[in-house]
Write a protein that binds this DNA or RNA. Structure first.
Length: 506
RNA sequence: GGCGUCAUGGUGUAACUGGUUAACACGCCGCCCUCUCAAGGCGGAGAGUACGGGUUCGAUCCCCGUUGACGCUACCA
């Protein structure tokens, strides 16, 4: 029932499989780091695979940003969409034919079946189950359709999904070994007949993931803990195909300060944000290495071997240090809080350790780059009388603690509650909008019309949040220059802070 | 609700996987240095290891239960 051990012989191959659905996420970097270390320590290969099977959430620029962010952190991969490799293509949207063939296999060997319900019907079923206080699950209505019925539906041209036929009867459970936790068992009555192929012909994560991991010879699946619950489905799939099962390592989930799964509302999660806000990649990777432990305690010998090193600085290490000393098996299973305070301290340590030359270079590459200043200059040229006033108008682009007082952001005709509610709407719109002047302007104006906020007050509110002031360079241009990640984060931080403020007043 | 996972100061971790006054770092407080602020130095408060039972000469570490937190419960990943 436990995994085959023959994978031990195979050359180690691991992978990360991010979805291009938005900004690259710190969680991706964390899992990427662990995979990277695992591969580098074992002479293995680290594969990057893009899981772009969700066409509804697909973001065109996302893939490139994932590449950039991982490279920024130094997490280089051996095979991937941009590098190629022996088991490509490494983009799932280019592998649809492979999935189709494999689904056919399952259909013929009876481990999967077609399900012809419409999304509406399934939603209705769900609602009925929830109302009846039953666990919402597919009822298996089409598990045993007759061939005649299937042919009839097919002839009608009815859309269908393909579902996994979770075995009934003996054994009535699936077990697998998590390398950090031991054997985990799921009763089949608790495993849903998961959709493997959507009606649009794209596979779901579960199918694509298993097929690709097998075809790409992945020996160790190192992923986040949120996948534990779906692992039995994956194991069942490996078995349905008659394939060897890889080792599973489920890493703890990064958390917000309140211990919930890390989320953009409560914490910056975009790697682009961290880069643009001036975090050094060495600090970020070091900090991620601290999450969950994994670095052995310093031995007496090693401290003696480096008498010059400050003993207190055992929290400070580089990526090569980690390759040399990190051990996945030492990972702590409690979800670590991604604590910005400590990350900032670490970043400060790295900044102080820079030579004056490289510190200057770091500034010139980021916050004081020519590219950035060239974008800013036209925004202020007509608005200043001496060059010395440059800072007066652009302070908000270089500061990280902007927080307008209520007098500034609440319009005369509105209450603070209305204002904050509208700001939340603005955030939602901004999140879904391309970061260009042409796209932002109509999107914001449309929202203003719907909610009956004048253009002036609409824009003024955002201006206040972004700049902390009612006077600034043009809003949209400023937002474009400041960047989507940082702007959105500033709005989120504003909303969260105001929410807390309102609560403490009560 | 069901299923699963987890549990050491406020936070991140350590403690030869049964024997320590439970250690280090961040944060916090104080002192020193200092034109300020940092940095740096020195010192301090803060957990008896979620709780309750076992096993053991002895449990942070092993077993059981409870509680809590978190995750999953989609034609999203």
């Amino acid at each position: 029932m436990t995994n085959s051990t023959s994978t031990t012989e195979a050359p180690i191959r691991v992978r990360i499989a991010p979805s291009p659905t938005g900004d690259p996420h710190v969680g991706t970097a964390y899992i990427g780091l662990i995979n990277y270390l695992y591969a580098r320590q074992r002479n293995g290969k680290f594969v990057l695979r893009i899981e772009d099977t969700d066409r509804a959430r697909f973001v065109a620029t996302s893939e490139q940003e994932i590449f950039n962010s991982l490279r920024w952190l130094g997490l280089t991969w051996d095979e991937g969409p941009d590098l190629g490799g022996p088991y490509g293509p490494y983009r799932q949207s280019e592998r649809t034919e492979i999935y189709r063939e494999h689904v056919e296999l399952l259909l013929t060997n009876g481990t999967a079946y077609r399900s012809f319900e419409t999304p509406e019907e399934l939603e209705a079923l769900r609602q009925r189950q929830i109302a009846a206080k039953l666990p919402p699950r597919y009822d298996g209505a089409h598990r045993e359709l007759s061939q005649a019925q299937i042919d009839a539906y097919l002839a009608e041209g009815r859309a269908y999904t393909v579902r996994l036929k979770v075995p009934a009867g003996d054994p009535a459970f699936t077990e697998f070994r998590d390398e950090l936790r031991g054997v985990i068992r799921f009763e089949h009555s608790n495993v849903d007949d998961q959709v493997l192929m959507k009606s649009d012909g794209f596979p779901t994560y579960h199918l694509a993931n298993v097929v690709d991991d097998h075809l790409m010879r992945i020996t160790d699946v190192i992923r986040a803990e949120e996948w534990i619950s779906s692992t039995p489905k994956h194991v069942l799939l490996y078995k349905a195909f008659g394939w060897e099962i890889p080792r599973f390592w489920h890493m703890p989930l990064l958390r917000n300060l309140d211990k919930s799964k890390i989320s953009k509302r409560k914490n910056p999660v975009s790697l682009i944000y961290y880069r643009q806000a001036g975090f050094l990649p060495e600090a970020m990777i070091n900090f991620l290495g601290l999450m969950g432990g994994g670095m052995p305690a310093p031995t007496t010998e090693s401290t003696l071997a480096q008498p010059a090193a400050k003993q207190s600085e055992t929290d400070i290490f580089t990526l090569p240090d980690m390759v040399a000393r990190f051990d996945v098996k030492n990972i702590r299973l409690g979800g670590p809080v991604f604590d910005l305070t400590k990350l900032k301290w670490l970043n400060g340590e790295y900044i102080r350790a820079l030579t004056p030359e490289s510190f200057y270079a770091a500034l010139r590459e980021t916050i004081l780059s020519d590219a950035y200043l060239q974008q800013i200059a036209p925004l202020v040229q007509t608005r200043i009388e001496t060059l010395g006033e440059f800072g007066n108008l652009t302070h908000f682009l270089f500061a990280d603690d902007i927080m307008p007082p209520a007098e500034v952001f609440v319009p005369k005709k509105s209450t603070p509650e209305e204002t904050l509610a509208f700001a939340a709407e603005q955030l939602t719109v901004l999140e879904a909008t391309d970061w260009t002047h042409e796209a932002l302007e109509p999107a914001l104006k449309k929202l203003g019309e719907e909610k009956q906020w004048s253009v002036k007050e609409n824009f003024m509110l955002l201006r206040a949040i972004l700049t902390g002031s009612t006077m600034s360079p043009p809003l949209l241009e400023s937002m474009v220059v400041f960047g989507k990640s940082r702007t959105l984060d500033r709005v989120r931080r504003f909303l969260e802070t105001q929410k807390k403020l309102a609560q403490t007043k009560k």
